[in-house]
C-alpha cells in the first residue's frame, strides 16, 4: 500500500513538475489519434490558461464569473473530436480508460441518444483531471481538463449554461 501511495505521489509530482509533457488521458490512451486526420484535435496549454486568467476575456455575462472561477485553476485542455465511427470510438474509449486510475463520476444518456461519461482522476481531495467522453450517432468527443479542479465550481458552471438555454 505504501509503495502504491509512493508511486502515486511520484506520478503526481511528475505531472505537477512537467510543463510540456502532460500525462492526460488523451496523450496516454489516444496518442495515436493525434496525427490522424479523421480527428479534430485541440490543445490549450497551461500558458494559455495563465493568460486567460490575467486577461479579462469577455465571455457571455451570465457564465463569465463561473467560467473564470473554473478556468483559473486549469492547467491544460485537450479535445479530440471525430465525426466518423463515433459509436465505435466511444466504446473503445470507455474500455481503454483504466478504471483504477480514473473514477467514473457520472453517466448520462438522454433521449437523443447521446451517451456521456464523466470520469475523474484524483489525488485525495484534489481532482487532477476531468475526462468527458461523449458518443452520439455522428459525434465522438473526448475532453480532458487537467489542473486543480473543483467539482463544485464545475457544477456551478454547467448550471449557468443550463440557464441560458
Amino acid at each position: 500500500m505504501r509503495i502504491v501511495s509512493f508511486l502515486m505521489l511520484l506520478g503526481f509530482l511528475c505531472l505537477a513538475g512537467s510543463t510540456q509533457a502532460q500525462a492526460d488521458a488523451i496523450s496516454t490512451y489516444f496518442g495515436q489519434y493525434v496525427d490522424d486526420e479523421r480527428f479534430t484535435v485541440v490543445y490549450i496549454s497551461p500558458k494559455m490558461f495563465q493568460m486567460i486568467d490575467k486577461l479579462s476575456i469577455d465571455f457571455d455575462e451570465e457564465s463569465s464569473e463561473a467560467m473564470k472561477d473554473v478556468v483559473k485553476d486549469l492547467r491544460g485542455l485537450r479535445i479530440l473530436v471525430a465525426d466518423e465511427g463515433a459509436q465505435g470510438l466511444y466504446q473503445e474509449a470507455i474500455q481503454k480508460i483504466n478504471t483504477t486510475e480514473y473514477e467514473l463520476l457520472m453517466t448520462v444518456r438522454n433521449k437523443s441518444e447521446d451517451d456521456m461519461q464523466f470520469l475523474i482522476k484524483d489525488e485525495g481531495d484534489i481532482v487532477n483531471e476531468l475526462l468527458m467522453i461523449i458518443g452520439s450517432e455522428d459525434n465522438f468527443v473526448l475532453m480532458s481538463f487537467v489542473g486543480n479542479i473543483d467539482l463544485e465550481k464545475v457544477a456551478k458552471l454547467s448550471e449557468s449554461f443550463e440557464e441560458q438555454d
Binding site: E37, F39, T40, V42, Y43, I44, S45, K47, M48
Partner: peptide, 16 residues
Amino acid sequence: FEDLMEIRDEGNNINF
C-alpha cells in the same frame, strides 16, 4: 517560445 494553443482540424494545423 511557449505554446499557447494548437488546433488541428481537417488537414489544417494552427499553432499559437
